[in-house]
Computed example of a mutant assay.
Amino acid sequence: MQKEKCESLDQVREKIDAIDQALIEIIATRQFYVDQAVRFKRTAEEVQSPERVQQVINKVRQKAIDLGTNPDLVEHLYREMIQHFIQRELKEIRP
Rank of each mutant, 00 (worst) to 15 (best):
H76S: 11
I93A: 01
Q62D: 11
P95A: 09
A44I: 07
V56L: 10
H76R: 04
K63R: 13
I65D: 00
D20P: 01
M81C: 05
E75A: 08
Q87T: 10
D72G: 00
R39G: 02
T29M: 12
Q55M: 07
F85D: 15
F85K: 05
R61A: 01
K41I: 01
S8F: 05
E25F: 05
M1A: 12
Y78M: 06
V38A: 07
E45D: 14
R39H: 12
G68M: 02
Q83D: 05
V56H: 10
A18G: 14
L23N: 13
L73K: 00
I82P: 08
V38G: 03
L67F: 05
H76I: 01
A37T: 15
K59P: 03
H84Q: 10
E14F: 03
A28H: 12
I19Y: 10
A64G: 06
Y78C: 05
V34I: 13
A44P: 07
T69W: 01
F32N: 12
I86W: 00
Y78S: 08
E75P: 02
E75G: 02
V56F: 06
V60S: 03
A64K: 08
E89P: 05
D10T: 03
A22I: 11
K63P: 01
Q36I: 10
A28I: 12
Q11E: 15
V56T: 14
E25Q: 12
E45P: 02
I26G: 13
C6M: 09
V53F: 10
Q55W: 03
R61G: 01
L67I: 09
E25R: 02
P50F: 01
F40R: 07
R39K: 14
A22C: 11
E4M: 06
M1D: 13
V34A: 15
E45R: 13
V47H: 07
P95G: 09
I26C: 12
E92W: 04
R61D: 01
K59C: 13
Q31S: 15
F40C: 15
H84R: 05
I19T: 14
D72R: 00
R30H: 13
R61M: 02
Q55S: 11
V60E: 04
Q36K: 11
T69K: 01
F85S: 10
F40K: 08
L67S: 14
E75S: 08
T69A: 02
A64F: 04
F85I: 00
M81W: 10
E89W: 02
D20H: 08
E45A: 14
R88N: 14
I65L: 09
Q54T: 14
Q2I: 13
I93G: 00
Q2F: 04
L90P: 05
R30C: 14
N70T: 02
D35Y: 07
K5R: 13
E80S: 09
V74G: 00
Q36N: 14
D10E: 15
E51K: 08
R13T: 08
R30M: 14
N70P: 06
L90T: 07
Q2P: 04
T43D: 13
H76Y: 03
I93H: 00
F32G: 10
D35S: 15
Q48K: 13
L9F: 05
R94G: 00
Y78T: 15
